[in-house]
Amino acid sequence: MTLGTFIIVSVIKIVIALFVLLTGVAYTVWLERKLVGRIQNRWGPTRVGPFGLLQPLADGAKFLFKEDITPPHVYKPLYIAAPMIAMIFAVTSMAVIPIGDWVTVAGVHTPLQITDVNIGLLIILGITSIGVYGIALAGWASNSKYSLLGGLRATAQMISYEVALGLSLVGVLILSGTFSLRGIVDAQAGTWWGWLPKWNFFQGQFVAFFVYLMAAFAETNRVPFDLPEAETELVAGYHTEYSAMKFAMFFMAEYANMFTVACLASLLFLGGWHGPLFGPTWLQEILPVFWFALRVFAFIFLYIWIRGTLPRFRYDQLMKFGWKVLLPLAVANLVITGLVVALRA
């Protein structure tokens, strides 16, 4: 592939990935309002378009035209930078996430991924760990009690759960022997006895999977771990002082992070895009993407379902759970996986 083609292909991929991600974010909000509405025995949005399907567009227009208030007591440079930091790092992690196998389009053979690097997983961990600054700085720069408390809670919570999250992934890394996300998915190809897929979940990583799932909920500040924006105690937590598009950026960043952890869960534990392939060639090239999207959708659905079902943790319960339950579980899983792999070799 020449340099020119490479640049053109990369730009096309980036544009498509951004478009799909932002559309996905907008319609996840719609899905959340619909599903939570159903769970609470009401309708959710119904007015704009059929089934309220145009509601995200209306919301977006509303955010654009609302007055952008900057309170006089804020520390302005960081107050403006914080939502940008949150949004940029939430979107950037999509760069290394593969969504399907190799495809040939118009004579160009390319992977369905913006770029495949051999430390892909580490890059995602690094980017999400820097994403904390967006929330922490928003809380501090707003110069208000509620915001500061929200920012502090978010920082403490994300540092604590990052440890359990990172350790739960090590078992998968031991099994597949690579940091490349594509390599990890390729290592899960095939089945046992013709029906049980060789996903890492079935290779004995189910404990790691549940630890990852719970830590991921905490990392994305979702119910039952949404202490940083607990509206009954902190008004709106770290984004209390934000309005219009700046608030929308935090909102989008949260949902983009949900997508990232859902994609990661599908890639690392549930076999990525592996699934039954059939039909003509063009269908066989599209089907992996469909199977992958199905898994991601299942995770997003689970997120919303849990939001509509569970109450919020208390802060001491949250910390106790992270350090005294999830962390020992993750370490135990790591030790046992290492032992099994060493004995098998």
Binding site: S129, I130, A136, L137, T155, A156, M158, I159
Partner: peptide
């Protein structure tokens, strides 16, 4: 991602 977050914290 970890040490500097603690500093800021």
């Amino acid at each position: 991602g970890a040490i500097m977050v603690l500093f800021v914290f």
